[in-house]
Write a protein that binds this DNA or RNA. Structure first.
Lengths: 205, 205
DNA sequence: GATGTGACCAATGTACAATATAGTCACTTA
DNA sequence: TAAGTGACTATATTGTACATTGGTCACATC
């Protein structure tokens, strides 16, 4: 364990470097315009004016670049969800807002940046770290709201908190995971309200 | 409405006919052995000893044959679920069994008859009638158990029953729909117990 | 040592002709 | 009239020669 100082997979090359930012910027633009698959590493190299080989000094694969872009997208969603949750102070309302915000933010990504959404789908399908981190974020947020609600006496305390958290996560899962969300479009209108209602009823003391 | 005596899409040719059964038998065998896509209509014709054209006297398309086979599979699952539900008499336990049975039966179809499962996936993806009917079956069963539980006083009665039913259906949806189930494998062990627990807590009076 | 590259390879993707398939229809036979 | 078919077409699907692409490496320059 003494070696695990940094992130699980240390980034290749200098972490803070102008060229790294240029690559990310170029990738964001190209991926969202032409899509992940149709963008070649050479395209990125050409737009920043370096050779393809140089890119591999900073990223160990094209997928690593994709993960970076994907992480940024997912972190935007996370920021929005976090904001929605902290905009209110009662835990039940926090849960409602959380569910609503995550569906809305994900759908917006889908409809506004479809090409980037496709990366998110790859990310979920192939279980990239960016996707796993996103799931973990939601899990943690659920747990926090749950703790708060138990402390304030608004949520029941008999069921083991891990069990409750895991169950709520499973309820939200089809709307969190981009791959599944695509197949849940028929329900995205009613699902947040219906399911929040059900979850909150299950939490009543 | 006076014309809607039979099913929405009347079957082509004589309904009760020996050759029709032969086609279904041959299709069941071929589809489960080689898969829906890799079976040609000529293959079916050859095994029953007629010409391909004759098959189209009984089914209006290859997909119609697929729907027939798929319906049979899904009806098997439905029978198993219905049996599991009626094996116990308290509505809460009925719900638990129902969830468990539907996941188990669907997984068994997946692992034992993977090729047939692929038809179920097509069915769900392209929203064939067989898939819609399957969903409707589950919806109805949920509603029935819900009514029973409300009558016996074991379930709460404040929430509109349609809302409760719709919410529970949404919770189960990722495990009912073959297309979604495939992406929920990671959770099929814990999901039935965890989610039944949550749902039942939400139903407590 | 940091910055940067052209040449190279295996694997994946593409274009397009050749083939196979779903589905129809006019027709035969009993 | 019911049972049954060969020949036909338009659309998929496949095979295959060819081009791209992801990724590496030895090497050059500052």
């Amino acid at each position: 364990m003494s070696t695990a100082i940094t992130s699980p997979v240390p980034p290749r090359g200098p972490v803070d470097h102008d060229v790294r930012d240029q690559i990310v910027a170029a990738a964001t633009k190209h991926f969202s315009q032409y899509g992940y698959e149709k963008t070649t590493v050479s395209d990125l190299a050409k737009t920043i004016g370096f050779s393809k080989a140089y890119i591999y000094k900073f990223f160990e694969s094209k997928q690593a670049i994709g993960e970076m872009i994907c992480s940024n997208c997912l972190r935007e969603i996370e920021a929005e969800v976090a904001a929605a949750v902290s905009a209110v102070d009662r835990p039940p309302e926090k849960l409602r807002r959380m569910f609503k915000a995550i569906v809305e933010a994900s759908l917006r990504l889908f409809f506004r940046d479809r090409k980037l959404y496709e990366i998110a789908i790859s990310s979920a399908t192939e279980r990239w770290r960016s996707a796993i981190a996103h799931e973990e974020f939601v899990r943690q947020l659920i747990l926090e709201v749950l703790k708060q609600g138990r402390d304030s006496g608004e949520f029941e305390r008999k069921t083991p908190i891990d069990e409750t958290a895991a169950a709520i996560y499973l309820v939200m899962h089809p709307y969190i995971n981009p791959l599944l969300l695509r197949h849940s479009f028929d329900h995205t209108d009613e699902a947040p309200a219906l399911l929040s209602g059900l979850v909150l009823r299950s939490l009543s003391p």
